[in-house]
Design a protein around this nucleic acid. Structure first.
Lengths: 298, 298
DNA sequence: CGTGGGGTATGAGTTTTTGGAATGTCTTTG
DNA sequence: CAAAGACATTCCAAAAACTCATACCCCACG
């Protein structure tokens, strides 16, 4: 168990600088001068024999080596921090896992399963907040985010969760009133729209060979979970991601009258900042999620 | 992400001392004097406001707090060490997971499944060595051990894997020669014994209401996997743990003529030194093992 | 095209921390 | 009761880390 560890304080400096991509703000976080941090980093680099940063006039960038190293250093320091805090409090407070998830995914999928995660990892306290735009972890404590967005930002960990398949759904009551036996009947109904997905129905109708211009649109909603409610209430036909509609369908509140669906081209992704990709709690949630998605085919 | 970390070098001292339960040998490992380590530990304790060791004249003991803290500190330092090594080699060498397992468990159960583990965790290189006595991790790099022994040593992590059920087995050929229709027929056969389990047959026979003194014993073997081979060769009747005999039975090389079995009171346990209980690789193996044992009922 | 500003590196000197050696204390053992 | 083994402590030297001031680099902007 003889170890060859670099000077640990210089790791602290490296980690802070790498997280902020700035020596100066790292120095602020550590309550020392900028020069001190700079020297610590140099020392670490020469000790390791590996360059960790690329120095630019307007800041620093992580080298490939630095990017490889950072998540592990962050994970180690983080776990020391939380172990130390627990020790001092004497009480074993549960560690927090803070997730930012779209409202639809939360209410239609996550909430009913999160209990299972909590049972499996009782030492974690899961906190859910809803979020929608591009995931931005800077200045927040959010550990991971789930979004229906393509990954853009470099240096973020991401992983596809599900490719979105939209199902045509309607309340059974609605179908009793106006029958729906062939795609053409669609045009007899109000179509519930998503304000964030203007072309959604157009694409769908086009695939069926229908003229989008003949369609009648009903209310528009920001989130799918609202459209689900609306469809259940008989306000019109919805076009809803399969895994979100699943519950309502299995409970008979919605049906997919013609068995029609379409791949929307969107997908749900899991994001987290690169430097958190190796945190134990993050790994655990990630694995659990993967398993749930595998074991609960749609 | 502002952290409150204790001085990291003092953690190094604490961790080494706690692993060795000795300030002096920790000092040797760290290549400093005993006094230096002693001071570092004191510093850490006063900084944390928590006593980590109980000082005795003949050595040191971990307090409850120290025992709680140690695995996390070890895990963090260990992961820093391995990340640093990977960084310096430039090459991502796989991390090693060294297991010490009884020969029988290895050959009859583990080997056929370990491939699955390696696929699931490709970053780990599993090395298997066989071992038998009480698990002793001092001075070795063994991460975990599997033994058929009750846990004794305090401070070791342990977890029961399976309670041992012994099946009566015989080669089909043997049964053709001498039939076996009732327990009494047992006494017509040679009974293969385990040199490590003197009372094994006695208990079994007793449960069936037979006089052990009337039994004829055949060869004795050190390990069950040898007895399995012997039984397959028709050397006599074996009394073999169910999960070890499973494969031979399903392939028809052995049969359990009367459907008899007995709980031996022994159990297989997984062990690892307490300070390694939080290592990522250890957690991963532990979880995989649990799942395999659950999903492969006997 | 020079200049200011934001960012980083560096050098000298000072402060803080750490380590070594020797010594002290305590306890177990023969 | 002396000796040995283990940890704590004290004093001092050495090393490390920090600050301050300054130099440097590049980009943006007038």
């Amino acid at each position: 168990m003889r170890r060859f560890l670099p000077p640990l304080n210089s790791l602290k400096a490296f980690e802070a600088a790498a997280r902020h991509l700035s020596v100066t703000t790292a120095a602020e976080e550590l309550c020392v001068t900028q020069g001190a941090v700079s020297k610590q980093i140099r020392q670490l680099e020469s000790r390791l024999g590996v360059g960790l940063f690329e120095r630019r006039a307007n800041g620093i960038l992580l080298t490939a080596a630095g990017q490889q190293y950072l998540p592990f250093v962050t994970a180690a320091l983080d776990s020391l921090d939380s172990a130390t805090e627990q020790l001092q409090r004497g009480t074993r407070r549960r560690e927090r896992l803070l997730l930012s998830v779209t409202p639809s995914f939360t209410s239609s999928w996550l909430i009913s399963r999160i209990h299972d995660f909590e049972q499996q990892y009782p030492h974690l306290q899961v906190d859910l907040i809803s979020g929608d735009g591009k995931p931005d972890f800077a200045g927040t404590e959010v550990d991971m985010a789930i979004r229906c967005l393509l990954p853009e930002r470099a240096g973020q960990y991401h992983r596809v969760l599900v490719n979105e398949r939209l199902l045509l759904v309607a309340s059974p009551d609605v179908l009793e009133m106006k029958s729906m036996l062939q795609p053409l009947d669609l045009l007899q109904h109000r179509l519930l729209t998503q304000v964030t997905r203007p072309g959604m129905w157009d694409e769908f109708l086009q695939q069926l060979g229908l003229e989008a211009t003949h369609a009648t649109y009903g209310a528009g909603f920001e989130h799918f979970f609202m459209s689900i409610k609306a469809a259940e209430e008989g306000l019109g036909l919805g076009l809803i991601p399969d895994f979100l509609a699943q519950e309502s369908i299995s409970k008979g509140r919605l049906v997919n009258p013609l068995g029609l669906s379409v791949m929307s081209g969107f997908a749900y992704y899991l994001f987290c900042p690169g430097y958190k990709a190796e945190l134990l709690k993050v790994i655990q949630f990630r694995d659990w999620l993967a398993q749930e998605l595998l074991s609960a085919p749609l």
